[in-house]
Design a protein around this nucleic acid. Structure first.
Lengths: 198, 198
DNA sequence: ATATTTGCTAACCAAATGGTTAAACTAAAA
DNA sequence: TTTTAGTTTAACCATTTGGTTAGCAAATAT
């Protein structure tokens, strides 16, 4: 592993745990086992190092979102495969959603920068599909944005607020993981149950 | 307004916007229009000032949660009144959920401290009620923890990740507010639709 | 073989940051 | 009127923090 990779991985770990404001360049250097000057040698500044880490994190998740936005499946199958694949992925990267959400909240300017990229998921196609399926009588009438927001909320929230969820439900990390595994199919069931006709 | 109140309100504003790590004592003093030494005169340290603000925030929201945990209503009515009252309250305190969630994530020790207080919401009664209504055939079988998590996710998530939501749905703050207003009744409808028998 | 670039470190620096102090001001109690 | 207690400020302090510099050693190019 090159020094640059060591730095990047250390930065990932520290930024994800502490956020931009809470992270310290010295701590990242220690984690990487190298001299602090190397951080600036390879990445110029804390901001640029952070941006590299943040964009990498965001574009790790974005493709998973495109399952629901871009594929050719029926709405029900989109919901099923999105929840399943998203949760399967996030279980192995539990830190990502909270990190991304926190930094988007604290850095509103950043949001547009990220979402104007070509990789950024675009919901218009999905919205049209929902309207079509409503018109066909497959699902009950609902504002497409609300439906997408429901799917998203149920899928992402536990990973956005893991500490709150574990505290409120009074469960351990193990039970949390079990629940998340269950949710891979449960969320789709619940939503489809709520919107399907008959 | 006393100086202590000025400090507290300024601290609320700054901590909520920037988080503990991103907030600066000087900025809080400027916001309050007083000398920085006064912060330490009234609150001793940044940590203690933060703790006062955080606990205040948490115990503003906690009572709204007890609607669903502690009242005597039927499950459906609990869901209806929780989503309605929670969203109504949060619309006027949009910063609160993201702030609480962020600091609970960054400060895992803090979580237990907060949730061991007597005000802290306890879910056991609700879980039993759900199991009873399942046994009575009112609702379909579901893990009570999953049901609570669904209610919670749909209600809280948009306020936990407002920037991400606005970005992904490509909506303005105004449209966001409209959607949230709609959700006061929509969430309950969707969930009840998903779990009710017949 | 020599010059040059690249990777790396120790030491250093200026600014920022949380916190302290001593003195001054204010208002109420004695 | 004098004490006394609480409030406020300006100046100061020690530490932390992001960032820089000068130099060294190994690789690369000439």
């Amino acid at each position: 592993m090159t020094t640059e990779e060591k730095i990047f991985q250390a930065a990932q770990k520290i930024f994800e745990k502490k956020g931009y404001a809470g992270a310290r360049m010295q701590e990242i250097a220690n984690e990487a086992g190298i001299n602090k000057a190397m951080l600036h040698y390879f990445f110029r500044s804390k901001e640029q190092l952070f941006e590299a880490v943040f964009l990498n994190a965001f574009y790790k998740i974005a493709p998973k979102m495109n399952i629901i936005f871009m594929s050719e499946m029926s709405l029900f199958d989109k919901i099923r495969s999105f929840t399943d694949e998203y949760i399967s992925f996030i279980v192995h990267n539990q830190y990502l959603p909270a990190f991304i959400i926190q930094e988007m909240n604290n850095n509103p300017d950043f949001v547009q920068k990220v979402l104007q990229n070509e990789n950024a998921p675009k919901p218009t196609v999905l919205f049209k599909q929902i309207e079509t399926e409503i018109a066909q009588g497959i699902i009950k009438p609902i504002n497409p944005k609300q439906l997408l927001l429901n799917i998203f909320s149920m899928t992402v929230f536990p990973f956005a607020a893991p500490m709150l969820v574990k505290g409120l439900l009074q469960i351990s990390q193990e039970e949390f993981n079990t629940l998340m595994h269950e949710r891979k199919t449960l969320i789709a069931e619940q939503i489809i149950n709520a919107i399907k006709n008959e």
